[in-house]
């Protein structure tokens, strides 16, 4: 009941005594756990710090290892942030365990879904490997637009798994492939930007 708490309206800056002060009771005597202030503030500050950490690891050049390593690091930090939000902001550690069970089950399903799908996608070429240089004609279309707004339609896609240089972007591979150079040059005859510009640049 509200008036049970009248005595502590202003001075609750410190960690409150959970047992006595911060449990409201309703008429049937069931406990309402009052959200404490200080832990939540600490969690919020922690989240801000972790955000800064994510930015630092992702943007500082000396921290760059490789695409996949940096993605993994970023996702681990994100998971930790998500865990903090779920445990404290979402009251999981205060609530009944069944709610945590629901979260764990859904996480399990997500992980299952993505990993098994990726296992398949990643091993598609293990047996059905075709010789390098074969490009499927017809089905695949890649669209590029040059500076004057003309639309270039290139056919054929390279999978990085078929390639000797999986680090290169797909079009780089296509361009470097002697089998394909002739076709590519023909379709880019008036395109001066078919060079190796890797920088990207901000529009």
């Amino acid at each position: 009941m509200a008036h049970d708490h009248d005595h502590q309206t202003e001075n609750e800056g410190l960690m409150p005594n959970l047992e006595h002060d911060e449990h409201a009771h309703d008429d049937h005597g069931h406990h309402v756990h009052v959200t404490p202030f200080m832990p939540m503030l600490l969690v919020f500050v922690g989240l801000l710090c972790l955000t800064a950490l994510t930015l630092w690891t992702a943007k500082a050049e000396y921290f760059y290892v490789s695409n996949s390593v940096n993605l993994t690091v970023a996702l681990i930090i994100a998971s930790f942030k998500g865990l903090l939000v779920a445990a404290f902001f979402m009251h999981l550690i205060y609530d009944k365990a069944i709610n945590t069970v629901v979260v764990v089950a859904s996480m399990f399903a997500v992980v299952l879904f993505i990993t098994i799908t990726m296992i398949d996608i990643g091993t598609q070429d293990m047996v059905d490997k075709t010789e390098k240089g074969e490009i499927a004609v017809g089905g695949s279309v890649q669209i590029q637009v040059d500076e004057s707004g003309n639309r270039q339609v290139t056919r054929g896609v390279y999978s990085p798994f078929w390639s000797d240089n999986p680090g290169l972007s797909i079009v780089e591979q296509a361009k470097n492939d002697p089998e394909n150079v002739k076709k590519y040059n023909k379709s880019h005859a008036h395109d001066d930007h078919s060079g190796d510009d890797h920088s990207g640049g901000d529009h």
């Binding site: 598609q124 047996v127 059905d128 075709t130 074969e134 499927a136 017809g138 089905g139 695949s140 999978s159």
Partner: peptide
């Protein structure tokens, strides 16, 4: 048999 891919 897929477009854009070889199967064997």
């Amino acid at each position: 048999i897929f477009p854009n891919r070889y199967t064997v």
